[in-house]
Design a binder for these strands. Structure first.
Length: 228
DNA sequence: GCGACAG
DNA sequence: ATCTTGTCGC
């Protein structure tokens, strides 16, 4: 599939923040998302050795599943190097280049991208899921495993229980329990979808485990690609 | 000023 | 993210 080239690689945090600020107005928020996506892609990255600085070897993976059966439709992986050091808030710049390589090699154009991390639940409202949404033009959501920004109340104990993730006065995401009695995940919209649909999609993708099947598949593929 | 801080 | 043993539970 095609990916837009809207910026080069930042060489400083200030430059990276400027790119986020420039792309943020391109986001389409508050529009209805794909309720029954035909295909859903999961993205993830695995690191070799110390995952802190720039230059460390990594592998990015994209796995496309049938939105109904959750069967694998297509897989793509790419190896590369961390393009930026790990800085909270600028996380996307680390793995974006390799992630985009994997996406470009994809024949399928997914109806939805499920990203590891956050969308608008971000200090400047432009997390990895937003970034990938603007570059691909596709609906995207972010599913984080741990809290980043925002305050929330512990959701109920059952699958489907949720509570709003609040930053300042605004709802930036939702803390969603995907399975009975397990730690909740943090869902936020990235591009061209709404929070209700995003959470609906995440529940549809978690029939058995805490994390979306897309994320689990991509995680496994990225580790394999890294190993060789 | 001091912590906290997606992966 | 990654480094890592044992351990509790289905």
């Amino acid at each position: 599939m095609e990916v837009r080239e809207l910026h080069g690689r930042p060489s400083s945090p200030a430059e990276a923040e400027a790119i986020q600020d420039r792309l943020r107005p391109m986001l389409e928020l508050g529009v209805p998302g794909p309720v029954e996506p035909r295909t859903v892609a999961g993205l993830d990255v695995a690191y070799a050795g110390d995952g802190g600085g720039a230059g460390t070897r990594l592998a990015a993976a994209v796995v496309v599943l049938d939105g109904t059966s959750l069967e694998v439709v297509e897989e793509s992986a790419a190896v590369g190097t961390a393009a930026f050091p790990y800085v909270p808030g600028l996380f996307a710049f680390r793995e974006l280049p390799t992630l985009l390589d994997a996406l470009r090699a994809l024949k399928t154009v997914p109806d939805l991208l499920v990203c590891d991390g956050f969308g608008v639940a971000h200090p400047r409202r432009f997390g990895l899921a937003c970034h990938l949404g603007v570059l691909t033009g596709l609906p995207t959501i972010g599913v984080g495993k741990t809290a980043f920004i925002g305050a929330y109340e512990e959701p109920g104990p059952r699958r489907g229980d949720a509570s709003p993730l609040l930053d300042g006065g605004e709802v930036v995401g939702r803390v969603l329990r995907t399975r009975d009695g397990v730690k909740p995940v943090f869902v936020s919209v990235g591009h061209r979808t709404d929070l209700d649909t995003a959470c609906r999609n995440v529940l549809d993708l978690t029939p058995e485990y805490r994390l979306p099947e897309t994320t689990r598949r991509a995680d496994r593929l990225s580790r394999e690609a890294l190993a060789g």
